[in-house]
Amino acid sequence: MLPWYEYLIVFCVGGLICMIGQILIISTKITTARILVLFEMIGVFLAAIDIYEPISAFAKAGINVPIVGFGASLAKGAINAVKAQGLLGVFTGGMASVAGGLAAAIGFGFLFGSLFKAKTKKF
C-alpha cells in the first residue's frame, strides 16, 4: 500500500476535478452528457500534448478515475498504436485501450438493466 499522504493527494485532485464539474453545473446549467464529453476531451487533449503522464504519476487514481482518465487512455492508446502499427493504429489504438471499460459499462448496463426496474424518484 501507498503511504497515507499519497491517498490524500488522490482525494484532493479527484475532489478538485469533480468540484470544477460542479461549478460548471451551477453556473452554466450544463447537462450530464456535456459534462462527460467535456472532461473526456480535456483528457484527450492532456494526453495528446504529452503532459498527462506526469500528472497521472503524481495524482494516480485522482485523475485516472475521473472520465478525464478515460479520454487520456483513448489518446494514449491511439498514439502508441500509431507508433507501433502506423495507419492501422489510428483506427484500432483508441478503442482497444478503453475496450475493457467500455465493454464493462455496456455489459453491466445490459445485465442490471434486465434485472432491475426503474423506480420513481423519491426526493
Binding site: 453545473i25 450530464t32 426503474a118 423506480k119 420513481t120 424518484k121
Partner: peptide, 17 residues
Amino acid sequence: FSTAERQFRYPLELGNQ
C-alpha cells in the same frame, strides 16, 4: 411523474441534480 420525466427529461435512475 415517471412518464413525464422520461418523455421530457432524463431516465429516472440517472444521477443528476
